[in-house]
């Protein structure tokens, strides 16, 4: 039992940190633009594919460094020549633009790399068990995923709260006009934030590709969950996104690890059904089976009891 709990927690942590790598960029970009970027997960997918191609020639580590840089540059260009122009036509136009971009990226990826799953592998160096507990192994690659996510977040946090540029970014998000009047190039700052946000998504794709498989549907799989996280955490709140990411990562991981079915749970509260009941299929679902919809259930609960999200502020 204990080993299940420990491994489920570790795996939940891996997923949670990965989700936050996407959610942090998405929520920052939201506070800047005022709209959710539907194409955010597409940058995550691009990261995985770029890294896969680079790794074919130069190895995994080159992909780890260059793929996020390329994705970030693409993101910055998209902001500069796409979103910034569309911005003048209002929020609906921006939403439609990001929506279209998500489709475009998915089609382009199928066109260039094909529909099949890519054999993108974690590096051999990390192909050993980091530790073995109760006879179960925790792979070094997962440990590496935790380390790299935490490292990046600590760096970003320090830059955002301690440095001059961090102060300018914080202020530009809430008071763009005032910051521009003080002589700071706000459009350039926004382009930079967009670039860093998409580079983070790209990095998430690079490190997730080998574990979660690299295929053209990977953006759709994670994209909707990241939206859920950003809403649960409270739109625009980085701390909220962090809590929600870990919450959902752990929740899913526990659900998958627990081999409990609905009948057992229902029995616990004293309800039982005949197996001839017409809704028998529903009662006999197991928790691992319902794990994928748990984030959405949580979303509904949060929206009912706390519509602004966990740490969101109400617009005045």
């Amino acid at each position: 039992m204990l080993e299940v709990l420990i491994f489920a927690t570790l795996n939940g942590l891996v997923t949670g940190l990965l989700l936050f790598m996407l959610a942090s960029g998405l929520t920052l970009i939201f506070s800047m633009m005022g709209v959710l970027n539907f194409a955010h997960a597409s940058f995550y997918m691009l990261g995985a594919y770029f890294a896969f191609s680079i790794s074919q020639y130069l190895g995994f580590w080159a992909g780890l460094i260059f793929a996020p840089l390329i994705v970030g540059s693409v993101g910055a260009l998209v902001e500069r020549y796409g979103l910034r122009r569309v911005h003048k036509s209002g929020h609906v136009a921006e939403l439609v633009f990001t929506f279209g971009l998500a489709f475009l990226v998915e089609e382009a990826i199928q066109f260039i790399w094909g529909r099949d799953t890519k054999n993108y592998q974690s590096p051999d160096i990390l192909d050993f068990p980091l530790f073995t507990l109760f006879g179960q192994e925790f792979s070094a690659y997962r440990g590496f995923m935790i380390a790299i996510s935490l490292g990046i977040f600590i760096c970003l946090y320090r830059v955002l709260t301690r440095s001059r540029i961090g102060i300018i970014i914080q202020a530009a998000i809430t008071h763009p006009n005032t910051v521009a009047n003080l002589g700071h190039n706000v459009p350039l700052i926004f382009m930079g934030v967009f670039g860093v946000g998409t580079a983070l998504a790209g990095l998430a794709g690079v490190i997730a590709g080998p574990v979660l498989t690299t295929f053209p549907g990977m953006a759709a799989v994670l994209g909707s969950i990241v939206f859920v996280i950003v809403v649960i955490g409270g739109l625009g709140s980085l701390a909220g996104a962090f809590i929600a990411s870990l919450l959902i990562g752990l929740l899913q991981s526990y659900a998958i690890a627990s081999d409990v079915g609905m009948p057992e749970l229902l029995n616990l509260i004293g309800v039982s059904f005949e197996s001839s009941h017409p809704l028998n299929d529903l009662w006999t679902l197991t928790l691992p089976q319902v794990a994928p919809i748990l984030p959405f259930l949580l979303l509904v609960l949060v929206l009912i009891f706390r519509p602004t999200g966990l740490l969101g502020k109400r617009e005045e």
Partner: peptide
Amino acid sequence: RDIFPSLTVRQNLILGMK
């Protein structure tokens, strides 16, 4: 008087430097 309420007095001043 658009000061940045969540930044400290010193950070507000730093923000003014070009």
